[in-house]
Design a protein around this nucleic acid. Structure first.
Lengths: 149, 149
DNA sequence: GTTGAAAAAATATTGAG
DNA sequence: CTCAATATTTTTTCAAC
């Protein structure tokens, strides 16, 4: 789908606040709210807008500990291993990467003990990983909720 | 702030769809929409809900390439280096970690050339980094927009 | 594609238990 | 904290350009 500058402005606004009324967006882009409604609908249909999500403070829900985990997967076991990773509660992201690791995970847990449980009782039990490295996130300095559109 | 099971259910719903009408949430938790309104407002005020954001497909806006970058920072240069990193367009996340790297970044760029520009023209120019490793994300298998509440 | 206006639906507010 | 009722806003639809 082709996006013009108006579409991109709408995306910027909805990225920073998904609950901005269409009427307010309409004022900012100097068009009617019916147009905003139309354009947003088309971007939703086209998959440009994938969804609207509340951002929750992880600590507030008892998930104060996070980590990045690099994994090496033995050849031929990729599909199975990934499928099992996907099913684990606390595995928030799975990225396939170039470089030292084949896969990098982002984990969330209650505390370091929860992290240990995730690593030893869940992830380590999956066959196919030859090596791993855990990087505990001490602090997140920036986690921009919006892409630089 | 103390969250009861009702609050957590509301959070789960708003995480998966931030635009769910309060009336529908009310039906699901079997309370009035005024109560939902009240609880959501209190969770917003308390910072439990940090915001509502549209999730945009990065490829649709020309940001089809992403990478993780590990960095080592020379002692004493942490504050300055982080501040400059924060200002760079395309640096989406900055995590301070234990282990091999002091800092791990998540970058977004148009393509591999944009990634090179980010790395060589922006990040490498910042003083204080002694070593770095770039892991290009070939694919993202999972990127859950919701925490396991 | 866009618009204004009407209809439908949702949210914000109020007052009371 | 919760609710019902009311007031206000927003979303949605639609005929017309």
């Amino acid at each position: 789908m082709e996006l013009d500058e108006t579409d991109r402005t709408i995306l910027r606004i909805l990225q920073s606040d998904a609950r901005t009324p269409f009427s307010e967006i309409a004022r900012e882009i100097d068009m009617s709210s019916a147009t905003v409604h139309d354009r947003v609908g088309r971007m939703e249909d086209a998959g440009v807008i994938e969804g609207y999500h509340a951002k929750i403070d992880p600590r507030a829900v008892g998930l104060g500990t996070s980590a990045l985990v690099g994994l090496r997967i033995e050849q031929g076991r990729e599909t199975d291993a990934l499928e099992r990773l996907r099913e684990i509660d606390g595995v928030q992201e799975i990225h396939l990467t170039t470089g030292e690791w084949d896969v990098v995970l982002r984990l969330y847990a209650e505390d370091t003990d929860g992290l240990r449980e995730l690593m030893f009782d869940e992830i380590s039990r999956i066959e196919g990983f030859s090596r791993s490295q855990t990087m505990v996130i001490l602090a997140t300095d920036l986690e921009a909720p919006a892409l630089p559109i």
